[in-house]
Each structure stands twice: as C-alpha cells, then as structure tokens.
C-alpha cells in the first residue's frame, strides 16, 4: 500500500471512530440524566407499576451497553426509534425534513461558494486596494450580524416593504422548482450573505499566505505576469486551505440553517431539532444530532482527503 493510500484510509477510519465516539457520547449523556427517561416522560406522579411497564416498553430494563448496541444496530438499519412527543417513527419524521434542509443548504451553496472564492481571490490579488479594504469591512460587518438580524432585515425590506418574496418559506405548498426557489429565496439569501463573508476572508488569507513564499518571488523574477503568478503558482498550493474553507462553510451551511429555519418557519431538520429540544424529545434529538454531526464529520473527512490529494508532495511521494 502506498503512503497516500495509507493516509487516506487512516483519515476515513478516524472519521468513523469519531462518529462512534460522538454517538456514544450522546448516549452516555442521556444515560446521566437524573432519574430516567420513563420518569422524565411520565412525570413525578406516575405510579411504580406504570413506570415499570413503560420502562420495559422502552427497553430501559436492559443494561446500558446492551441498549447502546441495540440502538446502534437500529440506527444502522435506519430505525431511530419513536418520537416521545408524537409517538411517530423518527425515521419517518426525518425523511421529508431532511430533503428540505438539504435543498436549502444546496441552494445557498451553489450561489455562495463560487462568488466567495472569486471575491477572495480578487481581494488577495488587489491586496490593500480600495476594493480589498471595502470587501474586508463589508465581510467583517456581515460576519458580526446574527443570522436572525439579517433574516428579519431581509423580510422587512423584500417582503413587507417591497412585497417581492413571502415572509414564511412554505415549501410544502409549492409544486414547481421555480416556485420552491422563489419561496425559499430569502432564507437562502440570508445564508448566502453570512457564508460569503466567512469564505471570502478565509480564501483571501490562504492565498496571501502562499503569495509570501519564495517560489512566488522566483516566478515574478522569471517575468511571469501577475494573473499567471496567482493562477498557476499560488492557486495549486493554496488548494488545500481553500478546500478546507469550502468544507467548513458547507458544514456551517447545514448547521446554520437551524436559526434561519426557525425565522422563516421552514419545515427542515433545524426546526425539528429546536422543537424536540424544547419538548425534550430525546429520540428525535439523538437522531437529528447524529445526522448533523455525521454530515459535519463527513465533510471534514472529505476535505482532509481532498487536501491530501492536492498536495504534490504526497501525491508524488514514494
């Protein structure tokens, strides 16, 4: 096996181990609850018999490690148990909402990622010019704004004052793609604004870091034009950090939807999670949390592997 394959395999393995660690952590967390789940749900007034019956029903009479394995094997087969609040299958609750959340995140990503990378490149290329400075101030301000501020501001301007877009993103009531894009434009725009700011700054920093390398000076002293210095000499070496920036922000998009979904009453996973936390519906919290953590870990592992693949020292190592 080559060094490259070993590195990639070890990254993958690390991702899987981390996911297990996170799932175990969540399980142990709930295990540490004062009283147990049955008590939590039925309240202090429940009789000993009903409690015992309910425990048996939930499988709480089993030892913890067996319950963990039981839960885990269910998860692997797509069975996340039942919601305590609605008594419905968690998997069923998740499925439509998962699609909605992914739709919103993808909508924002497709627009935000290319714009952010290009803006970051330009800011690095025209460092310390008026463009760079204003982009920096703009980005700093955008980063500093809570998502709900941006969201309400957009609602106030684009739906209340101008009436161009709906205040609530009711994706369930439209059936064309165009309709869906229109209905979810404001939440997508909120995410885009926040993500572009982060990504632009990080891309700029990554490129500027590479531009300080001696081989860049060497390229300039060979008479290489500036655009070619950035595209051919700096960019291939800045790929790894830029890939990381993109992955980090995609992960952020998927997580950042929580607040945005609440503002726009968008029927996605984020809103489900917030409701489940408020009503302490643990099976749902566990499933949604695991999903978010899994996506996050997956994106980070993918970024790691892509950066390894973009590094010539590793790609051409022997």
């Amino acid at each position: 096996m080559t060094r490259l394959q070993k590195l990639i395999l070890s990254r993958l393995a690390l991702g899987v181990v981390t996911l297990f660690a996170v799932s175990a952590l969540m399980f142990v967390g709930i295990e540490l609850l004062p009283g147990d789940l049955a008590q939590q749900i039925l309240g202090q007034s429940a009789t000993a018999e009903t409690l015992a019956a309910f425990r048996a029903e939930l499988g709480l009479d089993q030892p913890p490690h067996l319950r963990y394995l039981d839960w885990l094997s269910g998860v692997v087969q797509g069975d996340f148990g039942q919601s305590l609040a609605s008594r419905r299958d968690v998997a069923e609750l998740l499925s439509t909402r998962l699609a909605n959340t992914m739709f919103l995140a993808a909508y924002a990503a497709v627009i935000a990622v290319p714009i952010a990378v290009v803006l970051g490149l330009l800011a690095a290329l025209w460092r310390n010019t008026l463009f760079d400075r204003s982009a920096n101030i703009g980005a700093l301000s955008a980063i500093s704004m809570p998502e709900f501020f941006v969201a309400y501001l957009l609602i106030l301007v684009f739906s209340i004052k101008l009436g161009w877009f709906p205040t609530l993103a009711r994706i369930d009531s439209v059936d064309t793609l165009g309709g869906a894009l229109h209905a979810t434009f404001l939440p997508a725009l909120t995410l885009i604004l926040v993500v572009i700011a982060h990504m632009m700054r990080m891309t700029r920093a990554a490129i500027i870091n590479v531009l300080a390398a001696p081989y860049i000076e060497m390229a300039r002293l060979k008479g290489v034009p500036r655009w070619r210095v950035v595209l051919r000499h700096a960019l291939p070496n800045a790929l790894a950090p830029i890939i990381n920036v993109i992955a980090l922000n995609l992960a952020y998009l998927i997580v950042g939807v929580v607040v945005v979904e609440v503002v726009f009453s968008y029927p996605g996973l984020g809103q489900l999670l917030v409701d489940a936390v408020a009503s302490r519906d643990f099976p749902v919290v566990q499933a949604v949390g695991l999903f978010f953590a899994g996506t996050y870990i997956l994106l980070n592992v993918a970024a790691d592997i892509l950066s390894i693949l973009s590094n010539p020292r590793l790609r051409h190592g022997r």
């Binding site: 001696p214 081989y215 060497m218 002293l221 060979k222 051919r232 000499h233 070496n237 010539p312 020292r313």
Partner: peptide, 15 residues
C-alpha cells in the same frame, strides 16, 4: 535571471 539562496523553497512544489 535570478538564482535564489534556497532552491528547495524557490521551486514551486506543485510543478
């Protein structure tokens, strides 16, 4: 033309 002190740092690692 220019020949730099550290050739290891002055060759682009990507090419």
């Amino acid at each position: 033309a220019y020949v730099a002190q550290s050739a290891a740092a002055s060759f682009n690692p990507a090419h």
